[in-house]
Design a protein around this nucleic acid. Structure first.
Length: 466
RNA sequence: GGUGCCAUCGCCAAGUGGUAAGGCCGCAGCCUGCAAAGCUGCUAUCCCCAGUUCAAAUCUGGGUGGCACCUCCA
């Protein structure tokens, strides 16, 4: 398997440190608001990665944190008059439910910041003891970036000297402008946690380093984790700072491979609060099947920026439809597991830094070939078995195609309408029997008006939501 | 201003030296009472210029045009 390492900026053969055991850490959400499509993209990418790693025989331990200590959460609490925990529990729960609708499996570990304070304090203490951190008169603790010769190497950045001076003057407590807070003291009596450095709260960057050290780190190895992932924007400063902390406080580097997923834009514009164009997952899920969103959001390479628009989503859905139509043709047959060339090819494509395009092209070709053979006369028992087995493999590795195909095509249609459609289909069947095609076509138009298209087959008339 | 990324058919999108995958849309046909679905066929020489090479979308240089990060952000 190969992975593009976004720090070395090159594709590398993936070799875990510890036999076939893989540790993967991904920066998760700060639970103060609803998840948007960007959160979905990130969670999807690493869900796919986990599935591909497992399909390659690796034993994967996947951790994704929940940031439940943060100024934005605290602000929201004070504005709304709610308790912190009420807010974080609500959004954590919503996050899980929405991601589940996208077919995203829960990671093995989901450490919360509030449950990792000891590990954070321990890490700060180590940094203070080794002179990589210092306290200010205000009671804050900062990481001393000048103490780390490797600082900024991860994100390949160059410190601008003029800029450096200016910023230090404006915040005199810091030794260097790039220094970041490990512990912020809180004096106004709002939300605080106790520590040997006084009351306060931890810095954001610290959380991930501490949680990795506590839950995931390979002790005594060169790297704490095999793969560290997150959104492209996190490379600097978040991952740079994380890596610095771990490097200076422990005997290993943070990660061997770094993976950063591209951004989701909406109709060509960056999602942002100020533009008011954040597309929340909960809203998208009202209009589209979660599985369609999964397919669409994963249909382009994870490192490219993704431009979400309805037209492309519709085109993407049509592609997924084909998987389900084939499944429909083989409905009621049971599947025996078998090794097929298709599976090998599919996995090979995905194992090349998640080459989803090639993988999807293989799926299209497999479907086309199966349909072609099924169209020609004959029983094709072997082909049917092989195809079913291939479809099951797609479900396992890609995470789509698991639904009942009839239900898939009728997604979002309420029971009342379903009854009405079935009634109209009966009427049309009678008209067809009587060779009254004008009446039958009129009924079909009526059904089409309900947003449903009909398909007459030897097994009867079926319908799909358009 | 600094750093980095990208530019392939109407749209989405693979392909990093050997002569352009796949999907959507469109057109023609088979099938169908007619459709839908499915199948078959057709549809690009890869932003521009120069260079390296037997050979370049793919490498080098220059240009043009996008984008991202540098501040909380997936």
């Amino acid at each position: 398997m190969t992975i593009y390492d976004s720090v070395q900026k090159t594709k590398r053969e993936f070799i875990p440190q510890d036999d076939n055991r893989v540790s993967l850490y991904v920066c998760g959400p700060t639970v103060y608001d609803d998840a948007h499509l960007g959160h979905a993209k990130s969670a999807l990418v690493f869900d796919l990665l986990t599935r591909v790693l497992k399909a390659n025989g690796y034993d994967v331990t996947y951790a994704r944190n929940i940031t439940d200590i943060d100024d934005k959460i605290i602000n929201k609490a004070s504005q709304s008059g709610k308790e912190i925990k009420e807010i974080t529990d609500f959004y954590t729960d919503a996050y899980h439910k929405e991601m589940a609708q996208l077919g995203i499996k829960r990671p093995n570990l989901e450490p919360k910041a509030t449950e990792s304070l000891e590990a954070m304090i321990e890490l700060i203490q180590k940094l203070l003891d080794s002179n990589h951190a210092y306290k200010t008169d205000d009671g804050d603790v900062y990481f001393d970036t000048s103490s780390d010769s490797e600082y900024l190497k991860l994100s390949c950045r160059v410190q601008d000297e003029d800029d450096k001076k200016q910023r230090v003057e404006s915040s005199s407590q810091k030794k260097n402008s790039a220094d970041f807070a490990l512990w912020k003291s809180v004096k106004d009596g709002s939300v605080t946690f106790d520590s040997p450095f006084g009351k306060g709260r931890p810095g954001w960057h610290l959380e991930c380093s501490a949680m990795i050290e506590k839950h995931l780190a390979h002790k005594g190895r060169k790297f704490a984790v095999d793969i560290h992932g997150g959104g492209a924007d996190l490379l600097f400063p978040h991952h740079e700072n994380e890596a610095a902390q771990t490097r200076c406080a422990t005997d290993h580097a943070l990660a061997n491979y770094w993976m950063h997923n591209g951004f989701v834009n909406i109709d060509g514009e960056k999602m942002s609060k100020s533009l008011g164009n954040s597309f929340f997952l909960k809203d998208a899920l009202k209009v589209y099947d979660g599985e369609v969103l999964r397919f669409y959001l994963l249909s382009t390479h994870y490192r490219s920026n993704f431009n979400f628009n309805e037209e492309d989503l519709v085109a993407s859905k049509k592609r997924l439809d084909k998987v389900y139509r084939l499944k429909k043709r083989l409905f009621e047959l049971t599947c025996e597991d078998a090794k097929t060339p298709f599976k090998e090819e599919l996995l090979k494509a995905l194992s090349d830094d998640l080459n989803v395009s090639t993988s999807l092209a293989l799926i299209d070709e497999m479907i086309s070939h199966a349909n072609e053979t099924l169209d020609t006369a004959g029983k094709h028992k072997e082909l049917k078995q092989e195809t079913l087995s291939n479809l099951a493999y797609i479900e396992e590795v890609w995470g789509f195609g698991a639904k009942n195909p009839y239900e898939y095509f009728q997604w979002g249609v309420n029971e009342e309408t379903k009854t009405k459609i079935n009634e109209l289909i009966k009427q049309r069947d009678e008209a067809k029997k009587a060779k009254d095609f004008a009446a039958a076509d009129k009924i079909r138009d009526e059904i089409l008006f309900l947003g449903v298209s009909l398909m007459d087959t030897p097994q009867g008339t079926f319908w799909e939501r358009v």
